[in-house]
């Protein structure tokens, strides 16, 4: 099933927006990003934006399995 890229972007942006603004992420040699900067990167479809989407998707996929063991 093909997933709409815009849907994914909006999903990830919404998930990031749910976090407090004083959070930052250091992502290897991509650098350091505030929540809002990451949202911008997702919107622009940059390499770090795509890495952020991958990170969020990994989270969404893995969580049901983890919660089932709770």
């Amino acid at each position: 099933m093909e997933i709409d890229v815009n849907y994914l972007k909006n999903l990830v942006k919404a998930r990031l927006l749910a976090m407090p603004p004083d959070i930052s992420f250091s992502v290897g040699n991509f650098g350091d990003y505030t929540r809002n900067e990451l949202i911008e990167q997702v919107e622009q479809g940059t390499e770090i934006g795509k890495a952020t989407i991958d990170m969020q998707l990994a989270f969404i996929r893995k969580m049901p399995g983890i919660l089932n063991t709770q």
């Binding site: 004083d22 959070i23 992420f25 250091s26 992502v27 991509f30 990170m55």
Partner: peptide
């Protein structure tokens, strides 16, 4: 296998 993420509180 992927980037290593560090979430942090910038305080």
């Amino acid at each position: 296998k992927n980037p290593f993420w560090i979430a942090r509180d910038h305080k």
